[in-house]
Amino acid sequence: MLAWGKRVSPEFRAKVVDICASLGADPNHLMACMAFESAETFDPSVRSGAGSGAVGLIQFMPSTAQALGTSTEDLAAMTAVGQLDFVKKYFISKAGKLMSLEDLYMAILWPAACGKPSDYVLFDRDDHLHPKRYVQNAGLDFNRDGIITKAEAAAKVQKKLEKGLLPEFVWVSA
């Protein structure tokens, strides 16, 4: 069984399972994160709506792409299966630390929050040193208190996991 598995190719499904086996992560969690980050398209060229310059299955930032030895332009031109190589390369240093959906998503959104408690504050509207951080992620502030916690940020990804496990999206092997 794989969340969102009906939306991707057999090659994509197999590669996600292999990647997660090497990371010690749940493939359903990675699929939910990619569904969230790609607006359920699993399109390697999908661009961030927040104006960050991020692209792809896990919304690689330009600086992240460069650190991985590529560019957002090159990532956007790849096939979804091909871009999974960079997804793995991105996560490999976090292997063994991606035990929950929250931590897998934090590895994408805010790596410093991996392993932190659910009430850990990621973004604060009153952070005058980094005001764009809250603004770019304001949609994650469910209670509109000006603070985005790890739990709040992961809640939308949890909803993607739940949706991805519905019969019309989940892939079940024969």
Rank of each mutant, 00 (worst) to 15 (best):
I148C: 02
T72I: 08
A155G: 07
L165V: 06
S22D: 14
A80D: 12
G96R: 08
L104C: 08
S173I: 13
L75Q: 06
M99D: 14
L57S: 08
D85F: 10
L104Q: 03
V135C: 00
D103A: 01
L68W: 13
G139A: 06
A54E: 02
A39Y: 13
V170Q: 10
H29R: 14
S71I: 06
S38G: 11
P131T: 00
A3Q: 09
Q59Y: 07
K159S: 15
V157Q: 04
R133H: 05
L165D: 05
A95M: 04
D119S: 06
K94D: 10
E40M: 13
E40K: 15
W4C: 08
E37T: 07
K160Y: 15
F36P: 00
E73D: 15
K88F: 14
S93V: 13
K159L: 14
L161T: 07
D124W: 01
G164F: 08
Y105I: 00
K150T: 01
E11D: 12
V8M: 05
D145F: 07
V157N: 05
G96L: 07
A25V: 06
K150S: 00
T149A: 02
R144N: 10
L68V: 15
Q158F: 12
K159I: 12
Q59N: 09
L84H: 00
I19V: 15
P44C: 10
F36Q: 13
D26W: 04
L2N: 08
E102N: 05
P62A: 07
N143H: 13
W171H: 14
E162A: 15
K6G: 06
A67I: 10
A76I: 05
D141Y: 03
V172G: 07
S48T: 04
K97I: 05
L2A: 09
F169G: 08
P117A: 01
N28R: 09
G96P: 10
L101H: 07
N143F: 11
L166M: 15
K156N: 14
S71G: 09
I147Q: 04
F91Y: 14
M34S: 09
D18F: 11
K88S: 13
S173C: 10
H128F: 08
S52C: 01
L68E: 15
H130G: 02
A174W: 12
P62D: 07
P117K: 03
K163N: 11
S38M: 13
A35K: 11
D126Q: 05
R144A: 09
W4G: 06
G49W: 01
S9P: 00
E168N: 13
A65K: 08
S22G: 12
P167A: 04
S22F: 10
V8T: 11
V170N: 07
R13V: 03
I19W: 02
G53N: 01
R125K: 07
F12Y: 13
G53F: 03
V172A: 10
T41Q: 07
F91G: 09
Q136W: 14
S52E: 02
A153R: 00
L129S: 04
